[in-house]
Simulated scan of single mutants.
Amino acid sequence: MASISIPVLVLWGDEYPFTPVDGPVGKYFSSLPSQLSNVKLIVLEEVGHCPRDDGPDLVQEKLLP
């Protein structure tokens, strides 16, 4: 990730059953915004594995700005 210089927006569903935000992969991505200025992480509430299906309005709200 350190070699990526373009802006990165990570949308993560807090109800993702396979890769929870408090698991190893989730912790890695949660740590990135404090290490890399181009990375932003947004945890979407009540959203699971497919954010665009589980919370399309939330995803659109975060992508449009």
Rank of each mutant, 00 (worst) to 15 (best):
residue 1 M to R: 06
residue 1 M to K: 04
residue 2 A to L: 04
residue 2 A to P: 02
residue 3 S to P: 04
residue 4 I to R: 02
residue 4 I to A: 04
residue 6 I to V: 15
residue 6 I to A: 13
residue 6 I to Y: 03
residue 7 P to F: 06
residue 9 L to G: 05
residue 10 V to Y: 01
residue 11 L to R: 10
residue 14 D to K: 09
residue 14 D to R: 09
residue 16 Y to V: 03
residue 17 P to S: 05
residue 17 P to F: 08
residue 20 P to I: 04
residue 20 P to Y: 06
residue 22 D to G: 08
residue 22 D to F: 09
residue 23 G to W: 07
residue 23 G to E: 10
residue 23 G to Q: 10
residue 24 P to F: 05
residue 24 P to Q: 12
residue 25 V to T: 10
residue 25 V to G: 01
residue 25 V to D: 13
residue 25 V to E: 14
residue 25 V to K: 11
residue 26 G to T: 12
residue 26 G to F: 02
residue 27 K to S: 14
residue 27 K to Y: 02
residue 27 K to Q: 15
residue 28 Y to S: 04
residue 28 Y to D: 02
residue 30 S to N: 11
residue 30 S to L: 14
residue 31 S to Y: 05
residue 31 S to V: 07
residue 31 S to W: 03
residue 31 S to L: 07
residue 33 P to H: 02
residue 34 S to F: 00
residue 35 Q to F: 00
residue 36 L to M: 13
residue 37 S to L: 03
residue 37 S to Q: 08
residue 39 V to S: 04
residue 39 V to N: 00
residue 41 L to Y: 11
residue 42 I to Q: 06
residue 42 I to P: 00
residue 43 V to M: 08
residue 44 L to S: 04
residue 44 L to H: 01
residue 45 E to H: 11
residue 46 E to C: 05
residue 46 E to P: 02
residue 46 E to W: 11
residue 46 E to Q: 15
residue 46 E to A: 12
residue 47 V to H: 00
residue 47 V to Y: 04
residue 47 V to G: 01
residue 50 C to I: 15
residue 50 C to Q: 07
residue 51 P to H: 14
residue 52 R to F: 09
residue 53 D to V: 15
residue 53 D to I: 11
residue 54 D to E: 12
residue 56 P to T: 08
residue 57 D to N: 13
residue 57 D to F: 08
residue 57 D to V: 08
residue 58 L to M: 09
residue 58 L to Y: 02
residue 58 L to K: 15
residue 59 V to T: 05
residue 59 V to M: 05
residue 59 V to G: 03
residue 59 V to W: 03
residue 59 V to N: 01
residue 60 Q to D: 13
residue 63 L to G: 07
residue 63 L to D: 09
residue 63 L to A: 07
residue 64 L to H: 01
residue 65 P to C: 03
residue 65 P to E: 10
